[in-house]
Design a protein around this nucleic acid. Structure first.
Lengths: 179, 179
DNA sequence: ATAGATATAGAACAATGTGTTCGGTAACAA
DNA sequence: TTGTTACCGAACACATTGTTCTATATCTAT
């Protein structure tokens, strides 16, 4: 990737993140992003077709880091006991905490929906292999329950209760849910 | 309320609901709602300032029915045991099922966020009184967990697994969460 | 039944934001 | 150095929004 492209892309991301901290997603216009990033109008559209595509690209960037190869690779998926899985989850929480500044703005308002959807897509893969079966409760229900409540835990944590450590959050979660 | 106002309001709600079943919230324009409802442009704006206000009004209408006085009133809140609380939840699920047609479209895409926020606001009141305390886990965490996972349960149910009965959903939930 | 109030229709309008195009300039890579 | 590619920025057509206005239809209360 061209150095100029990386620079522009980064400028757009930073501008967008900054704007989301003081305005709602819908109210942010492309023009404002352009002004904040201090780039040309046509340059923005050379990178992203719409504001929505920009948001999606940002989510992908974040999750590609959080759920990096190291974490998702097969070799790390022989969780024989519950504890090692919990460590795995704690590890993911640490990565999320690193990205907190970028994430915080995205959570609020309307674009939280898109962010959460992406987050859940990754989480489905992580939880699907670990989930046990329980009689008389559909597996799809339990999977949705585990993934959703974890995603909401993350939101609750990073949005307004970041005083807790990843280890504490992990403990809260595993004491509240049967995996 | 004037008969004409009720009629117009109903036409707008129906048009909006119909549009949300085949298009995403963002892509629906005020003009389309006007055309679908077959009303004048100024009439729409006499009722709602923006599309967002319309969505909020629809959510309020739905929840005012689902969490009606009968359900929320103090006299029905002496749940001495877990079972009667579960019955209460089942009752709410029945009301939600009645409104399924209106709700289904709202769930999808971007406006699900707003709908879920409203739903959770009501649920906080319902769950707050019933929630027990657990050592070493913050009450706010447990409340958020109970409310969020119930709200997500509702979404999962009405959106793609409506083959289950309110009683079944209630059972799935209470076997997955400690209240 | 009539009169006064109110809701609606529909056209016209300014204002704003969107997405594209194009020619010129600057930065890159080989 | 040379060809390629990204950026700039102005201009443009277009869609959508939200307001204003007058005429008409419909309600409510007496």
């Amino acid at each position: 990737m061209d150095r100029r492209q990386r620079r522009t892309r980064s400028l757009i991301f930073k501008a967008f993140t900054a704007l989301l901290e003081r305005k709602s997603y819908t109210s942010v216009t492309v023009q404002e992003i352009i002004d904040e990033a201090d780039i040309g109008r046509s340059t923005f559209y050379a990178h992203f077709e719409t504001k929505d595509e920009l948001l999606k690209a940002m989510c992908r960037d974040i999750f590609d880091h959080v759920f990096s190869e190291e974490i998702m690779s097969e070799e790390h998926h022989d969780f024989s006991d519950k504890d090692s899985f919990q460590d795995h989850i704690t590890h993911i929480l640490c990565h999320l905490q690193e990205k907190q500044q970028s994430i915080k703005g995205i959570f609020s308002g309307e674009c939280g929906e898109i962010f959460m959807r992406y987050l859940k897509e990754y989480l489905y893969q992580v939880f699907d292999r670990q989930l046990t079966d329980v009689e008389d409760i559909p597996r799809t229900y339990r999977l949705n329950h585990a993934v959703s409540s974890f995603a909401e835990t993350v939101r609750w944590w990073l949005k307004e209760h970041s005083e807790y450590s990843p280890e504490q959050i992990s403990r809260f979660y595993f004491e509240s849910v049967d995996i």
